[in-house]
Write a protein that binds this DNA or RNA. Structure first.
Length: 430
RNA sequence: GCCGGGGUGGGGUAGGUGGUUAUCCUACGGGACUGUGGAUCCCGCGACUCGGGUUCGAAUCUCGGCCCCGGCCCCA
């Protein structure tokens, strides 16, 4: 009986892991360049951590279970809540802002489809304390910086501000749950549903028209002025607008201006307070969003002090999909540069010795361990793209030599054993 | 949870209106070939997603499960 892997999970083989590793390393490098330090939290947490944040309904979407002590636990469906939990316990009294990043897998019990898995990876960060347009601008610039560094093209960063919408709703006397409901529909981008919802809850015509116009507003920084003209500056909504304006100014200074201001971004979650942003790559099917984030007040929900943070996460697997779609990976070659083999198996110990000498000098080397035929080894080296084969034969050894075969040209050269490391290092361009 | 399309050796595939031993490529093991042998040739290994039904007979028709692909919901 064959055992299958659980639904919605994947095995990653050598080439794919190499690509993922490459992206991971790039992201780490960039995040650290911006002064973020890595943290790691447990893969499972108390179930209540997630229900507190997202409501009881979240249970349908997460893997949860009781352990042998009867504790209600859950595999983490995301990393923001665990990081907030950790912050409250460990970091609340450290100097602000706290800048941290994380990379880890999350789990959701959902129907798998393109870009959606039951185990998936998030690479993200939180900047806790020190809320300011500058912080937000830095975070957004860093996200863009990562994608540029990875060579990703045609990504769109959409920036919005929830304060504007929420304050207009508030002025129209739509508050509490109802407001969240409206924001949820806006987030979906379903205009029809929004219109019928607004009719149901009897919003005055002016506010309705205003909302419908605002969520359609997309463009460069100039639309801020348009928005300003549109809203009759109810004080709060205008403050939020100034906040957005300041953010865009800061972004300019950070050297990133290729964004789309999009007031229709609402991010259904109600703990977001001000700036929000999402990154899309088209051509990824239904799951075109590769990243999302913004400024929120989550710490307080978990009983910490009132401190706002800004954060975002890349859907790591979706970034990989996007890069693959754009063919950003060069066909990965063998990770081994040299294969050492005895011509006859009586010299296998000598081959081990030479292989080890190469390895200790940092040359990635494979050696025949089982006495395979020379033909098989050459064929193997050929298919895997190994560059050099070191042939260890009795006649050469008597003279203190081995034969190095260049697999591309087929040329062979006798090399003194004591020079073999230098010779190969030179050939491999180290 | 709902809707559509799928599932044939390790990887990629042919066959599909039921009928001998299921096609081909590749990979893998062995040989021609005990120091030049990466080619070629020969031999070998290895599969019809699982279970029920129809039938003399099912990879093929049918029902259900599992899994994969795409979409809805929701989300990253």
């Amino acid at each position: 009986m064959e055992i299958q892997k659980p639904r919605g999970t994947r095995d990653f083989l050598f080439n794919e892991m190499k690509e993922r590793k490459g992206v991971e390393i790039t992201m780490r490098r960039i995040f650290e360049t911006y002064g973020y330090g890595e943290i790691k939290t447990p893969v499972f947490e108390e179930l209540s951590l997630f229900t507190t944040k997202s409501g009881e309904g979240i249970k349908d979407q997460i893997y949860h279970f009781q352990d042998k002590g009867g504790r209600d636990l859950a595999l983490r469906p995301e990393l923001t809540a665990p990081v907030a939990r950790m912050y409250i316990k460990e970091l609340q009294k450290t100097t602000k802002p706290v800048k941290m990043y994380y990379f880890g897998s999350c789990f959701r019990y959902e129907r798998p489809q393109a870009g959606r898995w039951r185990q998936f990876w998030q690479f993200g960060c939180e900047l806790i304390g020190g809320k300011s347009p500058g912080s937000e601008a830095e975070v957004i610039s860093m996200a863009a910086h990562c994608l540029e560094e990875l060579g990703l093209e045609d990504f769109e960063i959409h920036i919005g501000n929830l304060g504007i919408l929420r304050n207009i709703l508030k002025d129209a006397n739509i508050q509490g749950n109802l407001q969240d409901q409206v924001m949820g529909v806006i987030d979906k981008g379903d205009v029809k549903e929004l219109i019928s919802l607004l009719e149901n809850i009897d919003v005055d015509d002016n506010s309705r028209e205003l909302l419908l116009k605002l969520i359609e507003m997309k463009g460069n920084s100039s639309i801020v002025k348009d928005v300003e003209a549109l809203i009759n500056c109810s004080e709060h909504a205008c403050n939020a607008l100034f906040e957005l304006e300041e953010l865009l100014e800061s972004l300019e200074a950070f050297g990133f201006s290729n964004y789309v201001v999009n007031l229709g971004i609402a991010r259904g979650l109600d703990y977001y307070t001000g700036t929000v942003f999402e990154i899309y790559v088209h051509g990824l099917g239904a799951q075109k969003q590769i990243s999302g984030g913004g400024t929120y007040n989550l710490i307080e929900i978990f009983g910490g002090e009132n401190v706002e943070s800004t954060g975002f996460a890349f859907g790591f697997d979706r970034v990989m999909d996007a890069l693959k779609k754009q063919e950003k990976f060069i066909e990965a070659k063998s990770s081994v540069d040299v294969f050492v083999t005895p011509i006859k198996s009586d010299l296998k110990l000598k081959a081990f010795d030479i292989a080890q000498k190469l390895r200790k000098n940092g040359i990635s080397t494979d050696v025949d361990l089982v006495g395979k035929k020379l033909k098989k080894i050459l064929s193997y080296a050929d298919t895997l793209g190994i560059n050099y084969v070191v042939l260890v034969g009795a006649m050469d050894i008597e003279e203190g030599n081995v034969t190095v075969k260049d697999m591309l040209t087929g040329e062979q050269e006798k090399v003194k054993i004591e020079n073999i490391v230098d010779f190969l290092e030179h050939k491999l361009g180290n």
